[in-house]
Design a protein around this nucleic acid. Structure first.
Length: 519
RNA sequence: GCGGGCGUAGCUCAGUGGUAGAGCGUCAGCCUUCCAAGCUGAACGUCAGGGGUUCAAGUCCCCUCGCCCGCUCCA
């Protein structure tokens, strides 16, 4: 990993944010090559997800997959995060239970102690008011102490060695209270007033959910269809770690794909295009997609979550994971695909008071004129949520190759589609008319492919050095103008991965590059 | 959050309390007809930051920041 980080700095892929001031924990910048790599990855996603969804494949319902895009703000109404659960989950001090993995708001946890207040060596019984744990723990406490009274957990001295957590069996499982400032906050408005506190989004998904109604009201889309979005999100990670993997500012590429709830499916839809069918469809296709941009092999796995790993509202979730050098032999998450039911839209409907039902006019009773009456429902959702910066990191790790047998042992094996530099044109030597011919070819390629990535040219120093530089930058093809070019209008093309050369006609170079880029 | 390691040129790293170093890379020139070749020269340092001890600190002490590793945690 150190070698990869060193190359990233040396070649201008990734720099530490504000490095000249000592850096800032959890933030990384991209240099010229890294910026293009990231842009190419995002563009590939937009192209394959939105412009030509799922490579033109039909969904499980036999119809083309429909997808539109939105661009929502980093700052949303604070209630969005109340509804999504992010505020409650992460803005208050919480205590965790090591035994049950439960998490409780610190200020909600009460404890039954003897009426005398002194429990001696006996354990006391924590509970949360109005929860099942209250009656259960009261019963146990009364059995132990007889007369009991209730005190706040915060009034007891730490560590709570003899406190039995609300849903636990053994004492001492509660952690110290911790403040989870997951979300960054800010105050819109010129005058700083805490009452106006807003948050930087911890995920792009909620922006999609809260605009879903606008999208289906104004765009002639109908369920099933998806809304996609890319953009930055912010999480105040407790421990930023592992280069850019866990950053506090990071970019996501998310799809919320809305599908018909199971109870409204008719006939063979029930066995063909149930939400779980869509879930599997996206899970498998997303896996194929990552492979298609160069992450094939044993470093990429699909991991289905166990039942006890699932969030309470999700019926199925899987992760696409990559074996990063720092996670090896384990894996790190690149993308999560979750079937979230109608949890999010239901939450926003409840908190906003706005009906978020989709009126599906292809269903319901048949009317005398043959049309359908229509039914209204809150769509279910499949959420493929990918990390763009994590994708970039995976591409960097996967591309990094060392082959001591080569003159330039260290090189970046980017798939041509994501490579920041698409091609380079060199005169073999800087004389005898070669520079002029190379300049002309360079200009031609730049005009044709410059919008996809850099097209380089360089006449300085030895040809081996120039090849080596391109290898480190991950440029897949180098075209070299030599003495023969002047006689027969051919150039050599050198393949980055093998070093092999072939000779092709100069007027075929553009077609060659186009083909390799998949155009 | 706890523990460990590290921080000196763009990169990799030497550096015994006494003048800031090497290799590679970069740049310029020469040379060069296919793989970091050779020759000549040049530029590049708040020694992570701050404070202290000392006649003198890259070196010793304290604090802070950052990165890596392990544990903990992880929507």
């Amino acid at each position: 990993m150190d070698a990869i980080m060193s190359l990233c700095k040396r070649r201008g892929f990734v720099y530490q944010t504000s490095e000249i001031y000592g850096g800032i924990n959890g933030f990384w910048d991209y240099g010229p090559l890294g910026t293009l790599l990231k842009r190419n990855l995002r563009e590939a996603w937009v192209q394959d997800v939105v412009m030509n969804p799922c490579w033109g494949r039909n969904g499980p319902d036999g119809q083309p997959v429909e997808m539109v895009m939105v661009d929502t703000r980093i700052i949303q109404h604070p209630k969005v995060w109340k509804a999504s659960g992010h505020v409650d989950g992460f803005n208050d001090p919480m205590v965790d239970c090591r035994e049950t993995r439960g998490r409780y708001r610190y200020d909600h946890v009460q404890v039954f102690v003897p009426a005398s207040g002194d429990a001696g060596d006996k354990p006391t019984f924590a509970y949360v008011g109005d929860q099942p744990s209250e009656a259960k723990q009261r019963k146990k406490a009364e059995k132990t102490f007889g007369q009991v009274k209730s005190v706040a957990l915060s009034s007891l001295p730490q560590p709570w060695d003899r406190v039995i957590a609300p849903d636990a069996e053994k004492p001492g499982s509660l952690t110290e209270p911790r403040m989870f400032n997951l979300m960054f906050d800010t105050v819109p408005g010129a005058i700083r007033d805490e009452a106006n506190k807003a948050y930087l989004r911890p995920e792009t998904a909620q922006g999609i959910f809260v605009q879903a109604k606008n999208v289906w009201d104004t765009n002639r889309v109908r369920v099933p269809f998806g809304i996609a979005q890319t953009g930055p999100s912010f999480r105040n990670e407790v421990t930023p770690r592992n280069f850019t993997f866990r950053s506090r500012e990071f970019e996501q590429m998310e799809i919320e794909f809305f599908v018909v709830p199971p109870e409204h499916l008719e006939g063979e839809e029930k066995t063909k295009s149930d939400p779980m069918d869509w879930y599997r469809f996206f899970r498998d296709w997303r896996m194929e997609w990552w492979k298609s941009i160069g992450l094939g092999g044993e470093n990429l796995i699909l991991r289905e979550h166990e039942k006890d790993e699932l969030a309470h509202y999700s019926q199925a979730t899987s992760d696409i994971e990559y074996r990063f050098p720092f996670t090896s032999p384990g894996f790190g998450e690149l993308e999560g695909i979750a079937y979230r039911g109608n949890f999010d839209l239901t939450q926003h409907q409840k908190h906003s008071g706005t009906k978020l039902e989709f009126r599906d006019t292809t269903r319901g009773d048949v009317l005398p004129n043959g049309s359908r009456r229509g039914v209204a429902y809150i769509p279910h959702v499949i959420e493929p949520s990918a990390g763009l910066d994590r994708g970039v990191l995976a591409l960097l790790c996967e591309a990094y190759t060392i082959d001591p047998a080569r003159p330039s042992p260290e090189f970046m094996k980017f798939h041509p589609r994501v490579a920041p530099i698409k091609a380079a044109v060199f005169p073999l030597v800087d004389k005898d008319g070669m520079p002029e011919v190379a300049a002309k070819l360079h200009a031609e390629l730049k005009k044709k492919f410059g919008h996809l990535g850099m097209i380089e040219t360089d006449a300085k120093q030895s040809i081996g050095k120039r090849y080596a530089r391109m290898d480190e930058a991950g440029c897949p093809f180098c075209f070299t103008v030599d003495g023969d070019t002047l006689k027969d209008q051919t150039v050599t093309v050198r393949d980055r991965d093998t070093g092999a050369q072939q000779r092709i006609a100069m007027d075929k170079v553009a077609a060659f590059v186009g083909e390799k880029l998949g155009l």
